[in-house]
Amino acid sequence: MNSVKQSIVPAQATVPTQATVPAQATVPARAVASSLRVVSLVSLGQHPVSGRLRRAEQDARALELCLTLSRQQPEGQVSVSAWHASGSEITSGSEQDLALRGYLGMGLEALTLVTPDTLQVAASERVVDVWPLLAARLREDAPHLVVCGGQSETGEGSGLLPHLLAESLGWPLVEGLVEIESCDDGHLTALQALPRGQRRRLRVKLPALISVDSAAPAARQSSFGQARRGSLMAVASGAVAHDEVTEAFAITPARKRPKRLKRIKATSARDRFKAAAAKAEGGAGKRLEGVSAEEGATEILKLLREEGVVR
């Protein structure tokens, strides 16, 4: 899988600097037509309190970035469509149908349901089952840009979907974007979120697949009338066989995750500036110089045990 994040110089604080990152030679070079075709992948979300299905927060932010890009460009230059892959049939008036119509209420006339020819994957929404549907359909439709959320709110929620699609299609994958500035001359210019509230500007060759960060602009409210007027169109992706990548997955019971180190999560410009300008708290650490590898490893292990990362 091609990545475009390795040789980029981060910007200082909230002032981004220009950085050019060419895609790898394995990415197919393709001229972008006058109309830029953008696909936003959406999934079923879940309310954290009631547990009811709704539009997913990160996927809604991804669709908001696409609609904003379409509004900024001349009319007809950018076409935006939303896709949802499902191995089970979605009936009209069901909870899944109402949740997906939340995306239609953002201003879409139709939402594409990517399904297999035969619903033998019934009631299965696992990533290892539905991602081949999207990969087959993307190869056939060949859009210029695919945008999605970092991870889903229902099902596995592992965040593997964009990585599997990029690996299968041979496209570059960029994660953690917060803004799409422009798409011209076959390249995408966007801002990526970094730790401590920093941003950096990327320039990526299309076609590409990107995922948005939780710091991206919040999605617009969903219009009830537009949601009811919009339509859900089922499109078969063709016969999909599980390939070697899918067969390599092993499903095991989940185990308790280790404690993570404290991470600053800044959402507003004020918080980002404070996090970037703040000095690292010291006093409790120990500086080691001229020690052997065994002594250094012992001190690192001691710190990990104090933080609760290693038991």
Score class of each variant (00 low, 15 high):
77 Q>A: 09
260 R>K: 07
109 E>M: 12
226 Q>K: 15
303 L>V: 13
302 K>L: 13
164 L>K: 10
105 G>A: 14
310 V>L: 11
90 I>W: 05
93 G>L: 06
225 G>N: 08
230 G>L: 11
199 R>C: 13
178 V>F: 14
189 T>G: 06
221 Q>A: 05
222 S>Y: 02
72 Q>L: 14
136 A>W: 03
107 G>R: 13
92 S>L: 10
255 R>H: 15
256 K>T: 04
147 V>Y: 02
219 A>C: 09
38 V>Y: 10
280 A>R: 01
262 K>A: 14
92 S>A: 14
220 R>G: 06
296 G>I: 00
294 E>H: 02
39 V>C: 13
27 V>K: 09
135 A>I: 07
82 A>H: 00
120 Q>F: 08
269 A>E: 07
35 S>D: 11
248 A>H: 06
60 A>R: 00
257 R>K: 13
285 G>F: 08
172 P>W: 06
130 V>H: 02
194 L>R: 11
257 R>T: 15
20 T>V: 05
80 V>D: 03
184 D>A: 07
184 D>Q: 08
124 S>G: 02
267 T>S: 09
17 T>L: 10
273 F>D: 13
183 C>W: 06
181 E>Q: 09
220 R>W: 04
311 R>T: 09
143 P>Q: 08
23 A>E: 00
214 S>N: 03
213 D>Q: 08
193 A>S: 10
191 L>Q: 10
82 A>R: 00
224 F>C: 11
300 I>P: 01
211 S>R: 07
162 P>F: 04
170 G>S: 07
215 A>E: 03
200 R>T: 15
148 C>E: 13
116 P>L: 11
287 R>A: 06
239 A>R: 15
200 R>F: 12
307 E>A: 14
81 S>C: 03
62 A>Q: 01
48 P>S: 09
302 K>Q: 05
108 L>P: 15
12 Q>D: 11
81 S>T: 15
179 E>T: 00
6 Q>D: 10
100 L>P: 15
255 R>G: 15
132 P>I: 00
22 P>E: 01
84 H>R: 05
5 K>D: 03
69 L>C: 08
2 N>W: 11
177 L>N: 09
104 L>W: 12
286 K>F: 13
91 T>C: 03
307 E>M: 07
302 K>M: 08
96 Q>Y: 08
300 I>L: 11
283 G>D: 15
37 R>K: 12
1 M>W: 02
125 E>F: 10
277 A>D: 07
287 R>D: 08
81 S>I: 15
187 H>G: 02
16 P>M: 08
274 K>P: 01
241 A>E: 11
4 V>G: 11
139 R>E: 09
20 T>A: 15
172 P>N: 09
278 A>K: 12
19 A>V: 00
250 A>Y: 01
60 A>G: 05
195 P>C: 13
228 R>P: 12
273 F>Q: 12
117 D>I: 05
64 E>P: 01
215 A>K: 08
251 I>M: 00
98 L>H: 12
77 Q>H: 12
22 P>Q: 00
284 A>S: 14
153 E>N: 02
60 A>K: 00
261 L>S: 13
71 R>A: 12
144 H>P: 08
29 A>K: 10
160 L>G: 08
130 V>Y: 01
141 D>V: 00
